[in-house]
Amino acid sequence: MTPVALRHRLAERGIDARLLLLGPAALFVAALFIYPFCYGIAVSLQPAEGGPFAAYQSFFADAYQRDTIATTLWIALPAALLNVLASVPIAYRMRGRFRGKRVLTTVLVVPITLGTVLTAEGLLNFLGPTGWFNRVLLGLGLVDAPVSLTHNYWGVFLSLVITGFPFAFLLVLSYLSGIDPSLEKAGAVLGAGWAQRFFRITLPLLAPGLATTFCLTFVLAFSVFPSAILVGDPSGTTRVISIAAYEAAYVRYDYAGGAAAAIVMGLVELVVIGLVLGLRGLLYTGSTSGGKG
């Protein structure tokens, strides 16, 4: 084949010299993400002792390791679910324009930017046995002894809500504002009441967006690491899978075990996301406008 003919063949498939602009980015991602990932898989299959799958076998054989999967899911799933479900009514109410909307969204962004480490520090002070929260409860006579909300499941859960809820809310709000407002008006003129409009028009159009939001929020919650150590109970109820991976690699210097745990973590996450996106595929996912114009 002559070079010109080859070029024409490639051009037919949309391949030409300008695609080289993709090169540097592809190279970086390949070298810093794909290669290490494959390297990690290779390391996990070459444990110091035992067969190729020994690292995985020992991970699943040891209840202390194996249970981290359930622990992580038990924290991440409810947190992500709460963040998404609480966002829906709030975003629905705020989808129109009102005074101070920009201020509100700005304030909501603050916890996202603060990040998990600072949230953890704040929660330790605020929710601790002598913190303001318990003082208020004691002062109001709602409890007799301080409620224990730090160094356990609830500390981690709340830190995930504080950073995850604004994220989910803003995403849901953006999906909601993408739905043509004339659809609800059409529903109203046709005789649909408030609930019927929400459940038969808005919710079906919003559902795919909710699935995506859930996935992204779940990813945030699933990779919980610093707050699980700082406000959680890192050797007990909040010993999440990332702690297991970190400990294996950096405390016990068992690189195969660390890599195996990291890969199990990635797989579990992908399974959950795959399930949610699979369900999303069953929904209507087209345009959310009411027609032309």
Binding site: V189, G191, A192, G193, P204, Y284, S289, K292
Partner: peptide, 19 residues
Amino acid sequence: PPEQRGFGMVFQNYALFPH
């Protein structure tokens, strides 16, 4: 409210329920 007036309406962009 609009749902109790018993009217029909054709919108400029039609507002058909896309799903």
